[in-house]
């Protein structure tokens, strides 16, 4: 089937979680992903970890991008990861983080299963490239 490859864009969920109203970054990355030819599901603001898990499982996305600038990443992100595990979705979902995450927290999150963290100043192309190279595929 030579045509299957073109017919299958990378699917992403761009998620805003918790009490964090800063969605400029999420919007920008959503557009960048769209322009890169990805299918992007956008969660909208103020979602709970449960909602993000539900959406990730149901949409069967290759990539979950969590945008978080509230400083609550150490609480919220592990909750999401555990939820994914519960539904058997953690293994084949690439989880990336964007926003403000202090360096000292990065390692802990990465050992929990976050594949990459894009902080302030990260380039759009790098993010797109990283997703292209690491999206697990279906």
């Amino acid at each position: 089937m030579s045509t299957t490859q073109e017919q299958r864009p990378i699917r992403c969920l761009v998620a805003k979680v918790g009490l964090d109203g800063h969605d400029r970054g999420a919007h920008v990355i959503t557009r960048a992903f769209r322009d890169a030819g990805f299918e992007v599901v956008y969660s909208g603001l103020h979602r709970s970890p449960d909602e993000i898990v539900q959406a990730t499982v149901q949409e069967d996305v290759d990539v979950l991008g969590i945008s978080i600038l509230s400083g609550a990443h150490n609480t919220l992100v592990p909750k999401i990861l555990d939820g994914l595990e519960e539904y058997g979705a953690k293994e084949d979902t690439l989880v990336v983080l964007g926003g403000i995450v202090p360096e000292k927290d990065e390692e802990k999150l990465e050992t929990r299963g976050v594949a990459a963290i894009f902080g302030p100043g990260a380039s759009m192309d790098d993010a797109v490239q990283f997703v292209r190279e690491n999206a697990p595929g279906r």
Binding site: T30, F38, V40, E51
Partner: peptide, 18 residues
């Protein structure tokens, strides 16, 4: 052109969380 898409219908669907 790119085949990309933003699927935003979920944003409006908050009544059935969890």
């Amino acid at each position: 052109f790119t085949g990309g898409a933003v699927l935003g219908d979920r944003i409006r669907m908050g009544s059935n969380v969890g």
